[in-house]
């Protein structure tokens, strides 16, 4: 039987009727057409589908849409519009930390979540934070550089503000 669910997606209230088997990722992509959330494995191994669910990064392929009923979801589209990841987007662009772009959503989510809890991560901590994000194109180093540069910018900005 289909279920009615209500959730907040990128600040907008959304009401949908879904089959219980529909994943949050499929809800976002197919129903809401928020196609910035990608599917690479549908079993939590590649990280392409990461979204923020009530403020923490989760795999949208491992969460059922019905489980997200009543919760707040932020996707790449929402983070982009909010400006919260502007610095990461800039350092990724500067450093060419993406090629085909299919992993980029997940990389940005992991980076955003990492920097929210660790303002000065080492390269090894960054690599650890990305340990569930698969990228076939870049070899990862540029992504590590970009996240490191964004962290530096934030630290310098915080110092300047003091």
């Amino acid at each position: 039987m289909k279920a009615d669910i209500t959730l907040t997606v990128n600040g907008e209230a959304v009401r949908e009727t879904v089959e219980p088997r529909t994943s949050l990722a499929d809800l976002l992509r197919d129903n809401l057409r928020l196609t910035g959330t990608h599917l690479g494995c549908e079993m939590g191994a590649c990280g392409a589908c990461l979204v923020m669910l009530d403020g923490v990064a989760v795999h949208a392929c491992l969460v059922l849409a019905v489980q997200a009923d009543g919760q707040k979801v932020e996707t790449i589209e929402g983070l982009n519009d909010s400006g919260l990841i502007k610095d990461l987007q800039e350092t990724f662009h500067d450093r060419n930390a993406l090629q085909c772009g299919f992993c980029t959503n997940g990389m940005l989510m992991s980076a955003y979540a990492l920097l929210a809890g660790n303002s000065d991560p080492s390269r090894d901590e960054i690599r650890d934070a990305l340990s569930g994000n698969y990228c076939r194109c870049t070899g990862y180093e540029a992504i590590v550089d970009a996240i490191s540069a964004a962290a530096d910018h934030r630290l310098n900005k915080a110092k300047g503000a003091q």
Binding site: P20, R21, S23, E42, M43, G44, H59, C61, L62, V63, L64, V66, Q67
Partner: peptide, 26 residues
């Protein structure tokens, strides 16, 4: 029973099991 879902949901996607009902404990 469904708690975090990180074992149950992939096993469903792989069609390794097909229960009639999922009971969310969260």
């Amino acid at each position: 029973y469904l708690s975090g879902g990180h074992s149950v949901v992939p096993s469903l996607a792989l069609r390794l099991q097909a229960p009639a009902l999922l009971i969310d404990l969260s």
